[in-house]
Design a binder for these strands. Structure first.
Lengths: 125, 125
DNA sequence: CTTGCCTCTGACATTGATGTCAGGTTTTAG
DNA sequence: CTAAAACCTGACATCAATGTCAGAGGCAAG
C-alpha cells in the first residue's frame, strides 16, 4: 500500500508517516521510482506508535521498544526489558497524577455548584 | 516572599513563575524597586497550575478556570462550568487511553518474558 | 498526450513551556 | 563599603511532532 492509503487507514497525516520513517519507527520498501510501499501490518504498527506518543513517550524511547514488538521471538535485551518496566512505572505515576487532578477538578466543580445553588436561593428569596 | 523563595517552595524555576505571571495565572505586588512579592497562598496556586499543566491543559484553558478557584463565592459563569466539565471529560478519556497503553505494554512484557524463558530453557538443554 | 492526483525531497514555520544569556539594579552579608 | 547573590527586562534558543510550501517526477484515465 502506498503512503496515502496507510495514512488514511491509520488516521495519521502523510507527513507524520514520513517522519516516523525518518525516526526509524517505520520502514518501507521503495518502488523503482522511489515511492514507499507499506505492509498491512504497518497499520497496527502506526497505531501502536501513536498510542505511545499519546502516552508521552519520545521517538527515541519508542525506537528502543519497537524491537520487542518486531522480534519477540528473539532474546529481548535486558536493557529493553528494563526500559519497558521503567516506562510502565512512569505511565502508572502519570495516570495516578491525572486521577488526582481529576479529583481536584471534581472538588472544584462541587464547590462552585454549591455556591451557585446558594446564590440561586438568595436570588429567589 | 520573593520570587526565588516561591520558586524553591513550589519546586519550579524562577523563569516559569515569571511566565505564569505574564500569562496571568499568577499575580504579584511589586516593591518600590520593582521586585515581585508573592503570598503564601501562591505556593498552592503554583502547584495547582503545575498539576493542570501536567494534565495537558494549556495556559489559556487554565486561565479560564482560575477564576473558579479564586472566587468560588461569586457566581461561576456557565461558560466556566461547562469548560470544567469538558476538561474533566478530556481528562477521563486521556486516563483511559493511558491505562489501555499500559495494558498493551504489560502484554508486550509478558510476551517477551515468555520468550526469554523459552530461550533460557533451550540454552540450558 | 494531457489532466489530475499522488508522491518525492528539502526546507522553513509553528506551538508552548522553559532555558539561557546579557546588561543593569537591588538586596543582603561580611 | 564592598562583594556576592538575587532580581529586573528583553531577547533569543530549544525541543518535538507536525503543518505547509515549492518544485519535480510518477501514474492512471480520458
Amino acid at each position: 500500500m502506498r503512503i496515502g492509503e496507510l495514512a488514511k487507514a491509520a488516521g495519521v497525516s502523510v507527513r507524520s508517516l514520513r517522519y516516523y520513517e525518518e525516526q526509524r519507527l517505520l520502514t518501507s520498501t521503495r518502488s523503482p521510482s522511489g515511492q514507499r510501499h507499506f505492509r498491512e501490518a504497518d497499520i497496527d504498527r502506526v497505531g501502536f506508535v501513536q498510542r505511545l506518543y499519546a502516552a508521552g513517550l519520545s521517538s527515541r524511547t519508542i525506537k528502543e521498544l519497537l524491537p520487542c514488538v518486531d522480534a519477540p521471538s528473539e532474546a529481548t535485551s535486558d536493557a529493553a526489558m528494563e526500559r519497558m518496566e521503567q516506562e510502565r512505572e512512569r505511565l502508572s505515576a502519570h495516570i495516578e497524577e491525572l486521577v488526582r487532578t481529576r479529583d481536584a477538578l471534581d472538588g472544584l466543580m462541587a464547590t462552585n455548584r454549591a455556591h451557585r445553588k446558594t446564590l440561586r436561593r438568595a436570588t429567589a428569596a
